[in-house]
């Protein structure tokens, strides 16, 4: 480890301690507090329902409603007003959107405050890394993905019928990757985005549900975890060196076609660096196993690592 690295890490460690101390000092201007506090009296669910019958008919079947029917604390007992705040000022002028906490585009409630309403109960757990996450930095509200007013999804009170459908509203390109020749079985309903990603924040970019890319992959591909007595460096380093995560126009979600995938790195003396052409295809004049079918892996079959005493070059 370089001197720079040692000094840098030490300095940043000290900095964090100092910054922590500064951050502990009270201030009147807190971003974590509401910028437009809703004040007033709590009216109770019956008053709300007297106008919002349709909303109520959907909401009463949601997980939230059922938990609020058996409240564990004072806040949960407030039912609608647990999230929307006290309703008395709203009753005075129902057209003034600033008088109630709402969670839609038309709402006058700042995103930070909207989200704070949710984190009042949903603090910690997977939301620990929400602050600073790419979703938070893009000013996403909880209600951009969730709609607790009705039961759209099997779990998670999502805005649509499922996780992947919800994500695809913004991540269309990634969703389309799953239609390619080789792909993870997402459109077939066997995996969803949150098998690999943690949308509420993560210690690993891009919002990965694991400490590293490989640790995410190993959750379903435990056989490739090894470790092996003969390791392949880029495999141990990062599965994405060779594989696309969502889908690919090549076999096995590979980033490009074999043998060129391997020839991007290998030019060891011997056979790895020969230029193979269409003449070497099965339909050509000189078929060559280095380009047919599984290409290099026809022979180097254990490319993820070998546990055979003679598997140095992944032949066994």
């Amino acid at each position: 480890m370089s001197v720079w690295m040692r000094r840098g890490s030490g300095a940043l460690g000290i900095f964090l301690v100092l910054a922590y101390a500064i951050a502990c000092t009270p201030t009147r201007e807190l971003v974590t507090k509401s910028q437009t506090q809703i004040t007033g009296d709590y009216l109770g669910e019956q008053i709300c329902m007297s106008c919002h019958q349709a909303e109520s008919s959907h909401w009463v079947h949601t997980l939230h409603a059922r938990i609020f029917r058996n409240p564990r604390n004072e806040l949960e007992a407030k039912s609608c007003e647990a999230c929307h705040g006290p309703g008395s000022r709203h009753l005075v002028d129902v057209n003034d959107r600033s008088r109630i906490i709402a969670f839609t585009r038309q709402s006058q409630t700042p995103i930070m405050q909207q989200n704070n309403q949710c984190t009042t109960c949903h603090a910690g757990k997977t939301h620990l890394y929400w602050l600073g996450s790419s979703h938070q930095l893009n000013d996403l509200a909880c209600s951009d993905c969730h709609n607790p007013m009705a039961e759209f999804s099997a779990s998670g009170l999502l805005r649509t019928a499922g996780v992947s459908k919800t994500c695809s509203s913004c991540h269309r390109q990634e969703f389309n990757e799953f239609r390619k020749r080789s792909h993870m079985p997402l459109i077939e309903g066997k995996v969803s985005c949150i098998d690999c990603h943690s949308p509420h924040g993560s210690v690993t970019s891009p919002l990965l549900a694991g400490d590293s890319v490989n640790q995410v992959c190993f959750k379903c591909h435990a056989e490739k975890r090894g470790p092996f007595i003969w390791e392949h460096a880029p495999v141990r380093d990062n599965c994405l060196n060779c594989h696309e995560p969502h889908g690919s126009n090549h076999d096995q979600l590979l980033t490009t076609a074999r043998p060129f995938l391997y020839q991007q790195c290998h030019t060891n003396r011997g056979h790895p660096n020969d230029l193979l052409t269409e003449a070497n295809l099965g339909s050509g004049t000189r078929p060559d196993p280095r380009i047919l079918n599984r290409s290099c892996q026809n022979c180097h079959a254990q490319i993820h690592g070998s546990n055979h005493p003679s598997g140095v070059r992944f032949h066994r």
């Binding site: 999804s153 099997a154 996780v163 459109i187 959750k219």
Partner: peptide, 28 residues
Amino acid sequence: LATFPSVVSAEELPPSVLGNTLNPTGSG
């Protein structure tokens, strides 16, 4: 700084969705 108290991040075990080709979201 971690003077203690508090939660788990536990990446959930697969599967995150229970569905099939005709009901890929596993919704009702």
